[in-house]
Amino acid sequence: MIKPNLQRVASIVTVAALTFSLNAAVASDLVINEEISLTNETAAPAHLENLTTIYSGWNFRKSETQSLQMDDFDNPGMIFVDQAIDQWNVVEGEAGKSCAACHTGGVEEFAGLRAVLPRYDEEAGGIQSMEDYINECRTDRMQADAWKWSESKMTAMTALIGLQSRGMPVNVAIDGDAAEAWELGKEIYYQPVGQLDMACASCHEDNYNTYIRADFLSQGQTNGFPAYRLKNAKLNSIHARFKGCMKNIRATPYKEGSDEFRALELYVASRGNGLSVEGTSVRN
């Protein structure tokens, strides 16, 4: 594993960051519709050497943004879940099938899936994300066109499927066949890159809970993805978010759906093992 140049990173971030006391909101509970209680703070998984507690990105948002996620009607991301419910029944492709044609138990069949993705898939011989499985269905079984990784129909469908696991703890496997990709993901996470020479860890491990200019840094957890962002008023995939971060540090991003991003997705997800799947979160 490549160690970050900590001193250098620290100096950059100190200039950029305002040191604030913990956002008051961190202590509060994330409860949806006054009934679904989510784990937004828990002990860090054993493999995490530098953190003792992990927090949902929800904790780092201002109360107005937090409240948008606490009611499914107020959550604008749910519009896209509704669209995916319609899409579920749309017949597309040469095989004349819809999602519903095969998944006769309804989308509820997928309860638990979000919590364990991405995962090593023997057939594919590598790490597969939810987007891969959706496209495999589309191309192989429906004989329809694959969706782009972050196009709106794809993010809506990942939101709908992810929502079935809401409240379940993230629990991705990092050992066995997944170990190799997980190590690669870890390496990417700690490797400073780009003109600003920053790693994921520079912001999301060493400096979460501080401001980087006007933005309050989270731990960069992915348990709330796909996330509806106020910034662009749509659902955002995990890989699209990685790409955005890499652009910010003036690095050349990996491609969405690349093996590097799948590996990073696995590693970052594993940093959130124990936090609840949030379904469709609302973030800045």
Partner: peptide, 8 residues
């Protein structure tokens, strides 16, 4: 495209 109302 894709306009969908929700009402509670």
């Amino acid at each position: 495209i894709g306009v969908k109302p929700r009402v509670k």
